[in-house]
Simulated scan of single mutants.
Amino acid sequence: MILLGHSHGGFVAQYVALRHPERLPGLVLYESAPVTGPEHMAEAAAGVGDFVRRNEGNPELPAVLAGLQAAGAARDDEGITAALRDLLPAYVAHYWEREDEFKELRTTLTCTYISSADADGTPDTIDDRAALPALTVPALVLVGHYDIPCGPRWAGELHALIPGSRLVELADSGHLGHIEEPAAFAAAVRDFTTSLPA
């Protein structure tokens, strides 16, 4: 199968591709990164700063920022769902310009909490940068220009690290390009998958 991993799923997909390349004819790393931990969080914080500057003066901005804070403190499905509903505008490139399209998603989405810590509470960080140059699976790296958690910097690093990879940036997307620019997203995935050996 061709494995597509989105966001945290990208780390899972990288894990599988690095350990079982014979099982995958292709790999799509969508809004992913090669590393988690402090460096990743610092880059996300810079992305939040850009989001705040682009939306300065919006009366809903404080609630979105409160959602970002709450997401970091969430420890169960209910907590992370409430936080992500609040912060959804930060995950969409132009949320308030397209609010009618996304408001139902915002009120109905549900999420599953995934801990970033080991069983003993130690942060479980990922750093695949040393391993990715040995990846043999054909790969597409797909990213939204306005993505905050796994933005263009990380897509560029993945592309540089993975031999022969393709890089596609969705110009008007944040973290959810498959619903923000569905035609461009589908075209990028289709073009990649149809180029793979039969």
Rank of each mutant, 00 (worst) to 15 (best):
M1G: 11
M1W: 06
L3Q: 03
L4T: 01
L4S: 04
L4H: 02
H6M: 08
F11E: 04
F11G: 15
A13C: 10
V16C: 02
V16P: 03
V16R: 02
A17Q: 09
H20T: 07
R23Y: 06
Y30S: 12
A33H: 03
P34E: 13
P34V: 11
T36N: 07
G37E: 10
H40A: 15
H40F: 15
E43S: 11
A44T: 06
A46Q: 05
A46W: 01
G47C: 06
V48I: 13
G49D: 14
R54P: 00
N55I: 01
L61D: 03
P62N: 13
L65V: 08
G67I: 08
A70Y: 04
A70R: 14
A71D: 06
G72L: 12
A74R: 02
A74C: 10
D76H: 04
T81C: 03
A82N: 07
R85A: 05
D86T: 10
L88K: 06
V92R: 04
A93S: 15
H94M: 08
Y95A: 12
W96R: 12
W96K: 11
E97L: 13
E101C: 09
F102E: 02
R106H: 05
R106D: 02
T107S: 13
L109Q: 14
L109M: 15
T110G: 03
T110Y: 00
S115Q: 08
S116Y: 05
D118F: 05
D118S: 14
G121Q: 06
T122V: 10
P123K: 13
P123H: 14
D124V: 04
I126E: 03
D128T: 11
P133M: 04
P133A: 01
A134Y: 00
A134T: 15
A139T: 15
A139L: 08
V141Q: 05
V143H: 03
H145K: 12
D147T: 01
D147C: 10
R153H: 10
R153K: 13
W154N: 05
W154Y: 13
H159I: 03
S165F: 02
R166Y: 09
V168S: 05
E169M: 10
D172K: 11
S173H: 01
G174M: 07
G174E: 00
H175C: 12
H175N: 11
H178L: 07
I179S: 05
E181I: 06
E181N: 00
P182W: 08
P182R: 10
A183W: 08
A186T: 12
A187P: 00
A187H: 12
A187C: 02
A187T: 03
R190S: 15
R190A: 14
D191E: 15
T193F: 04
T193P: 01
T194W: 08
T194D: 08
L196A: 01
P197A: 13
A198R: 14
A198T: 01
